[in-house]
Design a protein around this nucleic acid. Structure first.
Length: 294
DNA sequence: AAAGGTGTTTATCG
DNA sequence: TCGATAAACACCTT
């Protein structure tokens, strides 16, 4: 469910609610959520007595910084956090409970059970394999156009698959991939290595812009997303294409269409986001062969 | 009413 | 190595 703006909103809410709290006990109801090499048993033992000093984020991952450990949490499709008083009934799909010293409980809920927890000694928190390979955060400070252009030129995949790849740029998921491509006026199926410098620059700017505006709005609530305080996001009303199949394009009025790209539902405006006509390099005789062919 | 789709990642296969 | 596909799981919509 959550992409970078939603995870960032959750992070802020968690800091407000459980920043400084001390974990006194942990219950895990779905073992596979705790990834090796940590057994559920060791996960629980190690966390007892640890204080949550702060919570950071990298891409779509949350990083709880404790006394001796970094607890890394990925919400995947449907993960949520709630902070409850001890007496509150435990909802369906609650899989982990962190009991806090003040009597409250931090609860992790996940309908599809795809979410993952892992622990690293705090001094090794950058050694987490997904972080080592992960692309830059999608902000002007980290996300550099020159590197992005190089990455595009080296990839034969559809551009949408490339910007969903966390190793290219971190935190972009299905919603913001579609929105960024719309804003940059690029067809989601265009091969990355055919995207010229001007379009690449538009896309780079669009990704930074779309993500930052959504962070500002507290993310998008499409179906079930709520932040830690139980509030919905506000960015869904600004979505131009995602989930807007059949609705008029905000630019040209043409109905938004839905196709499948990289196994993901993909929304775009067929009028504003056109595939460029294939233009052969004007270098040799192949040029002549193409003349008249199209 | 069975089949297919859902905001994600990773393992596996060609 | 790269890129496509399936799998992890429960629920909702066609």
């Amino acid at each position: 469910m959550p992409e970078l703006p939603e995870v960032e909103t959750i992070r802020k809410g968690l800091i407000k609610l459980v920043g400084g709290a001390v974990i006194t006990d942990v219950a895990v109801f779905w073992d596979r959520m705790i990834t090796p090499p940590f057994s559920t048993e060791r996960f629980k033992t190690v966390l007892c007595g640890e204080q949550i000093h702060t919570i950071e984020r990298r891409g779509k991952y949350l990083i709880f910084l404790l006394d001796h450990w970094a607890m890394i949490s990925h919400l995947r499709m449907e993960g949520k956090y709630e902070v409850s008083e001890s007496g509150e009934p435990i909802k369906k799909h609650t899989h982990v409970i962190f009991y806090l010293a003040d009597g409250r409980q931090l609860r992790y809920l996940d309908v599809r059970k795809f979410g993952k927890f892992t622990l690293l000694p705090i001094e090794k928190r950058d050694d987490y394999e997904p972080f080592k390979k992960m692309g830059p955060e999608p902000t002007a400070d980290f996300f550099k156009l020159s590197k992005f252009k190089k990455d595009l030129s080296r990839s034969h995949r559809a551009i949408k698959a490339v910007i969903l790849d966390q190793n290219i740029v971190a935190g972009v998921g299905n919603i913001y991939a579609d929105e960024s491509l719309f804003q940059a006026k690029i067809h989601p199926l265009q091969y990355a290595d055919t995207i010229g410098p001007v379009a690449a620059k538009r896309l780079h700017e669009a990704i930074i812009d779309v993500i930052s505006r959504s962070v500002e709005a507290g993310g998008s609530t499409i179906r079930t997303y709520k932040n830690t305080l139980g509030e919905a996001g506000k960015f869904q009303v600004s979505l131009a294409v995602y989930g807007q199949t059949g609705q008029p394009c905000p630019n040209c009025g043409h109905p938004i269409e839905k196709i499948r790209v990289a196994q993901r539902g993909t929304h775009y405006c067929p009028h504003c986001q056109q595939m460029p006509r294939v233009r052969p390099k004007a270098t040799d005789s192949t040029d002549i062969a193409y003349k008249g062919a199209r």
